[in-house]
C-alpha cells in the first residue's frame, strides 16, 4: 500500500531530495516574505483605531497559527513513526520541535508588545495568550525530553509519545482556558478579536502568512537534513559525503 513512499523512506534518498528542494523553497520564501513584509509594514493602511501598532498583527497572527500548525504536523510525524516505525518521521518530528517553540515564543512576545499600547500592560490573561503560553510549555517539554535521552532513536520515540499525548490535550486545554477566561472576565477590555479586514490589509497578510509558512518549511528542511546525518553517521554514504566535503573545502 505504501510502496510509492518507500524510496523516500530511505534516508539517503530523502537527504538528497531535501537538498534539491531547499534552493527552490528558499527562493520562494525570500520572494513572499520580502513582498509581504514591505507591503505590510510600509504600505498597508494603518488601523483607524490602533494606528501603526496594528502592524504587529502581520507577524503575530502568522506566528501564532503556525505554532499550532507545527505541533499538529509534529504529532502526525510522531504517529507515523510510532505506528509504521519510520525512522525518518522521527527525524522530521525532532526537526520541527524547536522551530515550533521559537514561533510560539515569537507569538507570545509580539502579543505582549501589541498588548502594551492596546491595554497599557504587557501581559493580560487573555485566553489566546494563555493557551499560547501553555503551548510553549508543551513544546519545551518535548524538547527537554528529547534532549534528556542519549540515544537519538529512543529520544524520538519518547518525544513522539509525549507529542501525541499533548495533541490530544491541546483542544481540551484550549477549551478549558477559553472557558476559564469568560468566567473570570472583567479585567479584559477587548480581546484580540479577528477584525474584519479590508482587502488592502488582507493581501499583505496573505503574503506574510505564506512567507512565514515557507520560512518554517526551509528551517525544518535544514534541520531535517542535519537530523538525518546525525542519525546515520555510521552509514557509508554519510562518511563518503563528509570526505567529499572535506576534500572540496581544502
Amino acid at each position: 500500500m505504501w510502496k510509492w513512499l518507500h524510496p523516500y523512506a530511505n534516508p539517503e534518498v530523502s537527504y538528497h531530495f531535501t537538498n534539491k528542494l531547499l534552493p527552490w523553497l528558499s527562493a520562494l520564501t525570500a520572494i513572499f516574505l520580502s513582498i509581504g513584509l514591505v507591503w505590510a509594514l510600509l504600505f498597508a493602511p494603518a488601523d483607524y483605531q490602533q494606528g501603526h501598532s496594528f502592524r504587529i498583527f502581520y507577524i503575530h497572527v502568522p506566528a501564532a497559527s503556525l505554532s499550532m500548525g507545527i505541533y499538529v504536523a509534529m504529532a502526525i510525524a510522531a504517529f507515523i513513526s510510532l505506528v509504521w516505525q519510520l525512522k525518518l518521521a522521527d527525524a522530521s518530528a525532532a526537526a520541527m520541535a524547536p522551530v515550533g517553540a521559537a514561533f510560539t515564543a515569537i507569538a507570545l512576545i509580539t502579543g505582549a508588545a501589541w498588548g502594551k499600547p492596546m491595554w497599557g500592560t504587557w501581559w493580560i490573561w487573555d485566553a489566546r495568550l494563555t493557551s499560547e503560553l501553555i503551548l510553549l510549555f508543551l513544546y519545551l517539554g518535548v524538547i527537554a525530553l528529547h534532549n534528556a535521552f542519549e540515544d537519538k532513536n529512543l529520544a524520538g520515540k519518547a518525544a513522539g509519545i509525549l507529542t501525541l499525548v499533548g495533541v490530544v490535550n491541546i483542544p481540551i486545554i484550549k477549551y478549558s482556558v477559553e472557558w476559564w477566561n469568560t468566567l473570570h472576565q472583567g479585567s479584559t477590555v477587548s480581546k484580540l478579536g479577528k477584525p474584519s479586514m479590508s482587502l488592502d490589509m488582507l493581501w499583505p497578510f496573505i503574503f506574510c502568512f505564506i512567507g512565514f509558512a515557507l520560512l518554517v518549511a526551509v528551517i525544518i528542511c535544514l534541520r531535517f537534513r542535519n537530523e538525518i546525518l546525525a542519525r546515520n553517521s555510521i552509514r557509508p554514504w554519510v562518511r563518503e559525503l563528509i570526505q567529499k566535503n572535506t576534500v572540496n573545502n581544502t
Partner: peptide, 22 residues
Amino acid sequence: LTVGIKKGGVLLSLLVLPLYIP
C-alpha cells in the same frame, strides 16, 4: 517517559503540569 532518565524529577514536572491545567 522519564523513568529511565537519571535526573528525571524536574523534567517530570515540566511534562506533566501543563497537562493538569484542565
